[in-house]
Amino acid sequence: MKLTECNLNGIYVVESIDLSDKDSLSKISAMGILPGTEIIFLQKKPTLLFQVYNSRFAIDNYLGEKINVRPL
């Protein structure tokens, strides 16, 4: 499933990242998101909000759709 479809406060593991857009890929890996990374999904609005390690990131749906996750 995509990051945009996650449930609030659910814990997920990143399965894969869409490689088609290199700019997006760079941004996503700059946040430390890689296959295997754990993500706690926090908010859907006003933007997607999630926690990765000890940081929270806000990203838009465009980037969110490039991250594929599965529930832990």
Partner: peptide, 8 residues
């Protein structure tokens, strides 16, 4: 533009 930002 796309958006990503750390929320401290």
């Amino acid at each position: 533009a796309t958006f990503f930002m750390e929320i401290p």
